[in-house]
């Protein structure tokens, strides 16, 4: 198994504030499925920001695709970002683009021609159950529909890594399971999946998944050993946090 993400003593602070992540050391392997969990404010989104290259660590070593992020030139970042699909916690859809154009955006950025874009976008729209809503602007979509557009945009390029921040927070349980199937299908095709979630039941759905738990910016298990699969005892310990 090849490592695809490596953290060594990573710390992150915003500006001059306190460290919101500290002493993170772990390794993620290519082709695996990971859940990231922990209480609200524990630093899950912050950790994912490091993964999708929206933040540089304040200290420590982050290696991604076998490159050290600290020394990686700015001109190489776009190429790295194109290999990472992201479902943002707040969706981040372009407000004046239709659902179709939002989903097509990564393909256009990658330089694909309009003629080659239509079929894959239609396919993925169908997958997330939004075929009829392709022309709708994000503001006219429900929260769950926006979330599905965000997911469709993240997976359209079949990225090497998929990073999803609470990707099922706004959808009903059936849709949540369906979206998880989509992630699983992508995972089977080789994509490494990292999903931050509070949803315990979702985690038990993927048998092969491993789990990381953050508490106040630190891994619950500081050795970086990941639970595989999550033990029911682990789950019950913080099932009360579910909102």
């Amino acid at each position: 198994m090849d490592s695809i993400v490596q953290f060594e003593n990573v710390g992150l602070r915003y500006g001059t504030g306190p460290e919101v992540l500290s002493n993170l050391s772990f390794t993620l392997f290519s082709g695996q499925f990971y859940f990231l969990t922990g209480p609200s404010g524990a630093g899950k989104s912050s950790l994912l920001k490091l993964l999708y290259l929206a933040q540089r660590p304040s200290r420590g070593l982050v290696r991604l695709f076998d490159s050290d992020l600290m020394t990686l030139g700015q001109d190489r970042l776009p190429g790295f970002r194109r290999r990472i699909g992201v479902v943002f916690q707040d969706f981040r859809l372009v407000p004046h683009l239709s659902a179709f154009d939002n989903i097509a955006l990564p393909l256009r950025i990658a330089g694909m021609r309009d003629a080659d874009i239509i079929t894959p976008v239609r396919e993925i729209l169908d997958w997330v159950g939004l075929t009829a809503r392709g022309d709708a602007l994000p503001a006219t979509l429900s929260g769950g529909e926006q979330q599905r557009v965000a997911i469709a945009r993240a997976v359209i390029t079949r990225p090497d890594i998929l990073v999803a921040d609470e990707p099922t927070g706004n959808v009903d349980p059936d849709m949540a399971v369906k979206l998880l199937r989509l992630f699983e299908a992508l995972n089977r095709m080789g994509t490494t999946i990292i999903v931050a979630t509070h949803d315990v039941h979702l985690m038990t759905r993927i048998k092969r998944a491993q789990m990381m738990r953050l508490e106040a910016g630190q891994l619950s298990d500081p050795t970086g050993a990941l639970r595989y699969p999550p033990r029911p005892a682990d789950l019950t310990g913080w099932a009360g946090e579910q909102s």
Binding site: P78, G79, R81, F88, V94
Partner: peptide, 12 residues
């Protein structure tokens, strides 16, 4: 906002 999104999606 649009620029941030494009940036994160890998626009040069």
């Amino acid at each position: 906002e649009t620029i941030d999104i494009m940036h994160l999606l890998g626009s040069t």
